[in-house]
């Protein structure tokens, strides 16, 4: 039976294990300090968000070199602009928005084919035996389908899934309206459901994933 893989059992190809969410006061304190010029405080923010931003940008750009460059560029710009960040607003959405802007700018200046696969994509079967063959295949299929989504849909969907951002926060990150953000997530899921429905529920499988 397929099960949700808990973070502690994720194979090594995953960039990060999800850190404990920061206490809101703690992060606010780091931001205040960074705005006052404390570089080590900004370093904590980088540590907290770098891997998450890189993961998201990787799925947008579908290339790890580009994703890394974009992540670096994002934090450079964030550092330069940290004094303009409005205390009390969502720092994560702010950083992701800068990242998204960088991605859009980069896309405009470079041509990529629509279905270019990253040269160094890591297939699940290259990793540990914890993943069942069935789950590996399902993840691979989903991964391919996600890479073929329109970029806007992909961006919104993964902010929702990975970061758990609300639709309002997704809208801020992507510089659009909340309704558009909600619609993009909806459309992304709808497209994936259409493409993947034969793979999503193996015959006879019983899913326990609907939460009580």
């Amino acid at each position: 039976m397929d099960r949700l893989i808990p973070p502690s059992e994720l194979p090594d190809c995953r960039v990060t294990r999800e850190p404990e969410p920061p206490l809101p006061d703690e992060e606010a304190e780091w931001i205040r300090a960074a705005q006052a010029g404390d570089r080590s405080a900004f370093a904590r923010l980088v540590e907290r968000y770098w891997d998450r931003l890189y993961r998201w940008l990787y799925h947008l750009a579908r290339d790890r070199h580009t994703a890394e460059d974009l992540t670096q560029e994002t934090f450079l710009k964030a550092l330069a602009a940290v004094k303009t960040f409005r205390a009390g607003s969502n720092f994560r959405a702010w950083v992701f928005r800068i990242g998204h802007n960088n991605f859009v700018n980069q896309k405009r200046s470079e041509r990529r084919t629509k279905h270019q696969l990253p040269e160094d994509a890591v297939a699940p079967e290259g990793n540990s035996a914890e993943l069942s063959a069935e789950n590996r295949e399902a993840v691979e299929t989903v991964s391919q389908a996600v890479s073929e989504l329109p970029t806007d849909f992909r961006a919104a969907l993964l902010l929702r899934v990975y970061e758990g951002l609300s639709f309002r926060e997704i809208a801020k990150a992507l510089h659009t309206t909340e309704e558009t953000a909600r619609w993009r997530v909806f459309k992304a899921r709808q497209k994936l459901m259409k493409v993947l429905s034969p793979e999503l529920l193996p015959p006879g499988a019983v899913s326990e994933e609907i939460k009580e």
Binding site: D2, L4, I5, L10, P11, C13, R14, V15, V46, W50, D51, Y54, R55, Y58, H59, R64, H65, A67, E68, D69, T71, Q72, P118, D120, A121, V122, A123, P124, N127, N135, A138, V139, V142, S143, V146, L157, L158, V161, Y162, R189, L192, M193, L196, L200, L201, S207, E209, I210
Partner: peptide, 21 residues
């Protein structure tokens, strides 16, 4: 739909190529 959501959370990501972080 639930399974899709769970699979999305498990998409693999390769490590960054250099140590910029």
């Amino acid at each position: 739909a639930a399974r899709l959501e769970s699979l999305l959370a498990q998409l693999p990501v390769p490590p960054a190529p250099s140590e910029k972080k």
